[in-house]
Amino acid sequence: MSDKTHQLKAFERLLVIMDELREQCPWDKKQTIQTLRNLTIEEVYELGDAILDNDLEEVKNELGDVLLHIVFYSKIGSEKKAFDIADVCNSICDKLINRHPHIYGNVTVENEADVKRNWELIKLKEGKGKKSVLEGVPKSLPAMVKASRIQDKVAGVGFDWEEPHQVFEKVQEELGELQEEVNQNNQDRIESEFGDVLFSMINYARFLKVDPESALERTNKKFIKRFQYLEQKSKDLNKPLSDMTLGEMDIFWEEAKRLPK
């Protein structure tokens, strides 16, 4: 049996199970696209965690959960005679072919930047009634992810800095403006300028080829690991953290920094 045949049979098995669950399971029967939405978001975040942990076994499991949701939505769509899983597959196939004219057409590209630029221009042409490349950015995205997508999209149509040092200079400029408002204790302006700093840092991350969301989450995990080490040392000494001096805490914090990653 070829790999492709094996893969198709596994997918068919999932479709059969979905049909059975939808017909026989009280919980699965009740689900709608609205009730599944929050669960889908949760599954995607769990997949993101597994990717950050580089746990490939868990990535496999979480991909299965996400795939189940795709099949579930498609099953509901077929019941409403709106679409089925074949329509979903064909839709993305058509989209990929249309957005890769350098593979399936006669367009010539020289690099990744050309591909991204063509992608955004084609998306704008595809959009029914859309007048802005930014209309494709979901409103409900977390602010940091949304900022990244905004910057990716405008860069895709040529609105971008030319060199990384220019972006870093912008970061420094925004930091200076923030400090001016801090010095003047202007709270409303502080929030505005702080937002500008974050936006410019996210833009700089793009030039450094760093995903800011992943970078921050890695730092979160690192901080949690070190702080929990500090908490454990506090328990070992039978001395509450609130009774320890910052100097005492710092000793264990430095120890935690030397732990294997």
Rank of each mutant, 00 (worst) to 15 (best):
A215I: 02
V59S: 09
D49A: 09
V154Q: 09
L124M: 04
P260F: 11
Y45Q: 03
K95N: 06
E163P: 00
H6N: 10
L15G: 02
R226C: 11
V133D: 06
E20V: 13
E174V: 07
K225F: 12
L121C: 03
D211L: 05
L124G: 01
L15Y: 01
E193W: 13
G158M: 03
E12W: 00
P260H: 06
K29F: 11
D19W: 05
Y45K: 08
G129K: 09
P101E: 02
E163D: 05
E43P: 13
E213S: 14
R206Y: 05
H100V: 05
K225P: 01
Q232H: 12
D65F: 02
V107T: 10
V133L: 09
K239D: 07
E174H: 06
S234C: 08
D236V: 08
H69Y: 02
D196E: 14
E62C: 04
D250H: 14
G64S: 01
Q179R: 07
P164M: 08
I202A: 14
L67I: 09
E217V: 03
F194K: 00
E173S: 12
I33A: 08
E135Q: 14
P240Q: 08
L68E: 10
G136E: 10
R258Q: 15
M201N: 06
K131N: 12
Q179N: 09
K130D: 15
P138C: 04
K170G: 09
V109R: 00
E110D: 01
V210F: 12
E135S: 09
P26T: 09
D160L: 05
A143H: 06
F159H: 12
N54S: 13
T32W: 11
L63N: 07
H6I: 12
F194V: 02
L230W: 08
K146E: 12
L8S: 07
Q184A: 14
F207G: 08
N61M: 04
Q31G: 02
I17W: 12
I92T: 12
E213T: 15
F207P: 10
F11P: 00
K125E: 14
Y204F: 14
K60I: 00
G136R: 11
I190H: 04
D211M: 03
I103H: 03
Q228K: 15
R37T: 11
D152M: 03
D84P: 07
